[in-house]
Amino acid sequence: MRKLLATGAIALAALATGAVAIAAGTTEPPPQRKWHFQGPFGTYDRAAAQRGYQVYHDVCAACHSLQLLAYRNLMELGLTENQVKDLIKDITVPDLNDDGQPIDRPARLSDRFKKPFPNQAAAAAANNGKAPPDLSVIVKARADGPNYLHGLLTGYVPYDKLTPEQIKEFAVTKDDNFNKYFPGHKIAMAPPLADDKVAYTDGTKSTLDQQSSDVVEFLAWASEPHMEDRKRTGVRVVLFLLALAGFMYAVKRMVWSDKH
């Protein structure tokens, strides 16, 4: 029995090692970037996050929801109430009238971000059987989330740029979307962004890399909108503990001074 268990354990370890080796050998890690919000003193680049909201609104919102955010939360990005109202003036959301009948009405600041589909089944039916994920906490839900998302958005390779070895190894056809940073490389989502896909209102040059960076900044904020408050609190706590440690050391010296 012990021999059987040992053999099984060895087999499982070999299988796991092989799987890791295959994954490591076929999936290229995304480039590592320095993000404004990283580190103990990092903060959100609000100008970038505002542009990122524009990318989300113009491109991503057609398929992906942001269920945990309300429109009023956009004021935390440095926008005024009137600016947010202007951003959502053309958005209508489902509601009920006084008679309980379904209607569409203009979005209010208190409304959560409008879902692109009425339910998961409709979302899956419109996207080849798989509903697009909600993006509310996507940056926190993925390992190395910011770099992974940026790599995913910029990592598409056109079919005519693939090598014959890649086409053969991953069974890629002209109808597939090949992404060098996506596990398995074939991804259902077509390239969502491209140069000049979004016309920035602040005049920033709208390159693929710029759009990807901005929407990652916005989604990082969406995943943890209170990060800056948490970091400020942490700094205050550390400073308080350092001061307390110094005070306690001084008290100890005073109390025990006659014993030395």
Rank of each mutant, 00 (worst) to 15 (best):
K186E: 07
P183E: 10
A131G: 05
G155H: 10
N147V: 01
K161T: 01
I88Q: 02
N179Q: 04
A122D: 15
P132M: 05
D99F: 03
D176R: 01
L149R: 04
N82R: 11
K130F: 10
T163G: 09
K180C: 02
S136M: 05
G203F: 03
I138Q: 01
D98A: 06
V139G: 07
P192T: 07
Q101S: 11
S206E: 06
P133R: 07
K140T: 09
A141Y: 09
A126Q: 02
R112L: 08
N127M: 08
P146Q: 03
I138P: 02
T80E: 11
D134G: 01
G184P: 11
A188F: 06
K89A: 11
T207A: 08
D195K: 14
K186R: 14
D86S: 15
G100M: 03
Y181W: 05
I91N: 04
T80D: 02
T92R: 15
P146L: 04
A171Q: 08
T92N: 15
D86I: 15
I103R: 00
T204E: 10
D175I: 06
K205C: 01
P183V: 03
Q120M: 06
G203H: 08
D111K: 09
Q211P: 04
V157Q: 15
E165G: 06
T173E: 04
G203T: 07
L87E: 13
E165T: 13
P132F: 00
A107E: 07
K186Q: 11
Y156K: 07
A123P: 07
H150I: 03
F178H: 12
P118E: 13
T207N: 02
V137N: 13
G100D: 09
G145T: 04
A121Q: 15
L152P: 04
P164G: 12
A143S: 13
D175L: 12
K180P: 07
A124W: 02
S110E: 09
D104Y: 12
I88Y: 06
P102G: 00
N127G: 09
D160E: 14
Q166M: 08
Y181G: 14
P106H: 05
A122E: 15
N119L: 07
N119K: 09
E81A: 00
N127D: 11
A199C: 09
T207K: 01
D160S: 10
P102F: 07
E169V: 13
A131K: 10
N127Q: 12
R108I: 11
R108V: 08
L208V: 05
V93N: 05
K115M: 06
V93Q: 10
V157R: 13
I167V: 15
K168W: 02
A123Y: 00
D86H: 10
T163Y: 00
V84C: 08
K197L: 15
L109M: 13
Q120L: 04
D90Y: 03
N97A: 12
P164C: 10
F170G: 11
V198A: 09
D86W: 06
Q101D: 10
N82A: 14
D98I: 05
A122R: 12
A199W: 02
K115P: 11
N147G: 00
Q83F: 12
A143T: 08
I88F: 01
D144N: 14
A123D: 00
P106M: 12
N128W: 06
